[in-house]
Design a protein around this nucleic acid. Sequence first.
DNA 1: TCTGGGGTCCTAGGACCC
DNA 2: TCTGGGGTCCTAGGACCC
Length: 433
Amino acid sequence: MPYTSSSRFALVDVNNFYVSCERLFDPSLVGVPTVVLSNGDGCVVARSPEVKALGVPMGMPWHQMKDLVKQHGIQYRSSNYTLYGDMSRRVMSVIGQFVAEEDQEVYSIDESFLDLASYPHSDGQTLGRDIKQRVYQWCGLPVCVGIGATKTLAKLANHIAKKNPELGGVLDLTAVNQDRFEGWTGAMDVSSVWGIGRKLTEHLHAMNLRTVSDLMKAEPKRLRERFGVVVERTALELRGIPCLGLDVVEPRQQIIASRSFGGPVYTLDDLKAAVQTFMGRAVHKLRGQGSCAGQVRVWLETNRFRAQDPQYHPAAGIKLPTPTDDGRVLSHVASTVLEHIYRPGFRYTKAGVMLEELVGVSEVQQDLFSVATPNPKRHALMSVLDHIQGKFGREQVGVGHAGVKERQVWTMRQSRLSPSYTTSWKQLLSVNA
DNA sequence: TCTGGGGTCCTAGGACCC
DNA sequence: TCTGGGGTCCTAGGACCC
């Protein structure tokens, strides 16, 4: 195994995360083919092993699966991000017990990198098994652990551990001999490498670079000329030369809130209601990370899958004279942008808002002539809003149209949503003795 | 009828400056 | 006859990730 440095990374991730969460609280799903659907119940975003075995690809439109569902008794759930988010925090904190805080990177809702460089004497295989065992015992969720000299190799190890059950869900590539390593990489398609997606796979195949092993042996310089630094880095990482470090958690550089509607939307009023609700979500995140937004962008979409429909995908943004985290200002600006891009006569199916040019609250440069000069009353109002939203949920209060519980033609479908077992007193799991 | 949502990074090309 | 060139900033778009 190419192992030229003392660097070592682990990647821990939860198997079939969303499905595993649903099964944890509803054991009737265990062993039964189960999927979790995207927001709006549009398509499949998580599959149990039984469903994967049926050949259902990630992202398959739900409405195309009706026959399979009937035939194999597939169970489904609408996605419950409150539940998954809470379980994620628990899992991440258990994984974090194995290293110092600065050596853990929470990479996604169900994945965490660990930098093991400071623990040269710990045995990878043992560490991996310990992590797996403790997460299962404390959170009830199954994980796989991959270890390698670079992040890309740790990802690869994790992938191999998943595909080869005899490994018991743990693989330390730094302890594997060259023959065994080449046995795996020679048989894996390049597309299984982290950072090689659909387009790059096509191009690499055309160059006759088909397996992971092919990519490792390719000349990095040549890859750089053809594809740029990203692919060159990937190839170097595969050879055991670290190019990527642990990413420290930094505040987001942009915040997006968008949803497909439950049904087609035609009027400016309905779009306004939707956009203001999205803005409410975005502002909640913005204030949660202590940032102000310097630009507001809004976009609309018609259904691009309906060729017979006239298509219109407008987007526009407004730069603010002074960055702000005031939900009323941001909502107002979003409405203005919306009015600007809206055209009647289209069948809108989706809208979104984006907050950009984010800066820390303390870094905001006050514009002498700005209307957004510090205003204690406004500050107090927004704080109360934060507090209420924290206590009772974001949908209870909001700015403008947001949170109004009247006819909402644009709210999404969630036909089979599991309860928020872990975050709501009202929805705690009850046990009948 | 019905096709997710939220992010990051890199690159190319044009505008602009000196 | 001969009509600069390099740096930087911005934006749009493309690729990737989960």
